[in-house]
Design a protein around this nucleic acid. Structure first.
Lengths: 128, 128
DNA sequence: TTTGACTGTTACGTAAAAGTCAATTATTTT
DNA sequence: AAAATAATTGACTTTTACGTAACAGTCAAA
């Protein structure tokens, strides 16, 4: 049987437009089956979309996302390429670690902003 | 005395172009002084640029960055605006927490990719 | 049978964030 | 002072990631 999803089902679930999912297909990120011309999304497509959107949220470009996906499908066979890939993976990890640090710092800052707001609110509240 | 920085000094330090810094000025994010037409960046400008770039790295738009900066300069005086601001701050925090989660998950994934590479390398290494 | 929801393709449009280039102007160095 | 170096402005271009419009086919319900 193997349930499949329609495109709008997925757009609703993930809060994206049909245009977006078709775009991802054009870009070679997903390959839903077809019945005639209409797309049939399987559970694996669904999961892939989840990963794509996660990548998107943390600022990966389509190209980067495609690269990661392709590595999953089949890691390169050639020695040099493998080593190159590992280097890139390492770079990306450092990138992400930096981003996490940035996020933590910004979270702290937002806490400050909030506090400033509360102080200000108290002032106003007392004054009136 | 109060040392100041030239635009190129800062571009080198932060790895951005002059165009970028001028763009940030056009957008009202920074306000370096001038001697004639040339910009003089003070330490406070420098720090601000650091913050801007941090915001950029985690995917804030210029508008969002500007907003945060302005709140720092002077939190709004009006009650309603303050509350609205706090709501937005809260949203942004949730956003960032989600992003941090995304990053952690992706980091784990990259670890997997790396392992797959190592396995593959071992296979190739043995085979030859 | 026509309405409405959903699907598809093709093509052009757009917003954000710079990059690039050209023409000037200032400043330094020789 | 001439030449080289560095900075400015303004206009135009580019890239990414879709949005939007226009038009058409499918299928179920009213």
């Amino acid at each position: 049987m193997d349930k499949y999803y329609s495109i709008t089902e997925l757009t609703r679930e993930f809060g994206v437009s049909t245009r977006t999912l078709r775009f991802y297909e054009d870009e070679g990120l997903i390959h839903p089956e077809r019945r005639g011309r209409t797309r049939l999304f399987r559970a694996t497509d669904r999961r892939l979309i989840q990963e794509i959107l996660r990548g998107r949220r943390i600022g990966f470009t389509i190209a980067e996302i495609r690269e990661i996906i392709q590595v999953y499908r089949e890691p390169p066979g050639e020695m040099g390429q493998l080593k190159l890939l590992m280097i890139r993976v390492d770079e990306k990890r450092n990138d992400l670690r930096q981003k996490r640090k940035d996020i933590d710092e910004t979270l702290a800052e937002l806490d400050n902003v909030e506090e400033a707001c509360l102080t200000r609110l108290a002032e106003i509240g007392v004054g009136t």
